[in-house]
Design a protein around this nucleic acid. Sequence first.
DNA 1: AGCACGCCGACT
DNA 2: GTCGGCGTGCTC
Length: 722
Amino acid sequence: VSPATVLPVAVEAPQYTGLLRPLSYTSEQPLAPGTLVHVPLGKRRVPGVVWRGSAEVPENNELRPVAAHLTRLPPLPDDWLALVEFAAAYYQRGIGELALAVLPPELRRLDDAGLARRQARWAAAAKRSARAGAPAVLPPSPPELLPEQSAALARIAQEGAGTTLLHGVTGSGKTEVYLRCVERALAGHSQAQALLLVPEINLTPQLEARVAQRFPQHRVVSLHSRLTPPQRLANWMAAHNGQAQVVLGTRLAVFTPLPGLALIVVDEEHDASYKQQEGARYSARDLAVWRGRQRAVPVLLGSATPSLESWVRAQQGRYALATMSTRAASPAELEAGAASPAPAHAGAASPTSAQAGAASPTPAHAGMPRLRLVDMLALPHPRGQPPVLAPALVAALQERLARGEQSLLLLNRRGYAPVLHCAACGWKSGCPNCSAWRVFHKIDRSLRCHHCGLAQAVPRACLDCGNLDIAPLGRGTEKLSEELQALLPQARVARIDADSTRAAGALDAQLAAVHAGEVDILVGTQMVAKGHDFRRMTLVAAVNPDAGLFSSDFRASERLFALLLQAAGRAGRSAAQASASEMWIQTQHPRHPLYAALERHDYAGHAQTLLAERQAAGLPPFSHLALLRADAKQAEQATAFLQHAAELAALLPEAAPVALYPAVPHPLARVANVERVQMLVESRSRQALQRFLWAWLPALHPLPRQHKGVIRWAVDVDPMAI
DNA sequence: AGCACGCCGACT
DNA sequence: GTCGGCGTGCTC
């Protein structure tokens, strides 16, 4: 019997088990770090990864042998192990939990034989396409660069392996800059690979098509959670073994093993989707920057409205800054867009004359749409309520309709009405399981909770008093579409939101209808404000954006500004239309500084205002936050757990540079009958916060036993909201 | 999380 | 007399 080696193995076990470090197993043969294995854990058999470093051998504990290992999978490289190790440490999760969560789910199930069958299938497919002959597609000659694009590329090249923030207004041609960087990176050496991150799955097919067209001689793969498990494994494997040169994906793609990594691009780097909100709560954008440093490759962060975190770093000189402030349809964009020519404008499209106290026209700005702020309180409202749409906006919509142009109405609330209300007794359609209203969906006459999913038929009469006169309060996209159709019967109105796009392929079909000109007015939630390039759209209106002005969420204002500026970018993407394009804002606070900055298209000025507020309040990026969250049957139980945790913290010397705030209910206090309470931890120093969490959290693992009713607890490092 | 073990109510 | 409720505890 050969002497067995002892291996560290990161196993798939959830965080609250306390099994944070790799466990130790024996193996007859030495297995390289990064090898996928199956090991016995208790009565189960779980997947794991042979880890790096030496095994920690527990005292008086018999080690068990590794059950099986995958020989067909090249071991995960050391830099991948280091990335997972860093992320697990930084975000306070188990190494094995994170490692297995970011690998393709198929790998968990497949054994050597199964993997061999897959590989044979991939090889056969590759052979077939090779026999079909490489399509004689020559790479298209890249479009000529605008001066600002050239300058940005020079700045990025000068920065070398560092991080560059590319601040470019919508329509300034950021994508072309990305493509040139990819081109440059791939030209560096034959094994080179580029990683492109995008915030939403919806945006990958568009970009993938454009990238594939630009690099016909290279293999481009995408990685996101909508792929089928076999597709995802195949694409991941192509990246892992170096066959794919360009990997395009959502946040999970930041964990792709890439032997030839030469460039990382993070598009729309400010987007909140980069922060994983469940399980290991990592920020793919921040990890991308870390990974760029680790591998000494350039990282490009692109946005029209950078996150304040990135903006400050650029101001401090920690990131290079490249700016593109001119909006001009580059040849690439014309090429990429629909073949339809821009409709001719009927004469001098005179701006809608502002009706009494309504719109205030401003001069066009660098090819950006003209902003029109409508003071909803100044409008006459005969029935005690301001109208849904200001008459001036309706007139502007009618003009677009007459000219055959498209309009977009944004309303960030799906469903028909956010709540049903009984005028007689005051009953409202609350969710019995959550601290939230159930939304009225007229389409199937249901009351649906958007948090726990509870759906019931709308009652005929008030459940409390029997009154028949129960009415919807407020307005969602369903109702807005209906009202719009009534106001403009001749318009073809379409609605795009999470409800209308639930079915597979529905979003693509609906977008195609818009692009084909089968839609005059599109009503949608924020999901249509991002990225989509609507060529014939010359009007975008935010129907009711004020909620973001006074939210308790400290990032709400930053997000609203980004959303509105981005939405404005949907209008008049082609230069020919830009002059006639308008962004309308219906507001009750027309003098709010956020709208004033929007009117000037002044990102930098608005950022400065927000940063001053953040500094005064001690909020990021001037401080670093973590949230300790506890879920329990009763709020008091969760609070008691958090208070106990705070008492333990007070005993630690590492707590000195850290502030702990009192436990408070989560903004959405109850979901599916679970009460959620959280405690904010804040420090000026990221390092001090990390050191504190490292000292503190291990001491919390035994606590739930003393606190009945506590279902789970978790820490969220760098939370998006508090 | 799984999956045990473990000690108290309504059934063949 | 058993089947089974989910409380408590462990997993190299």
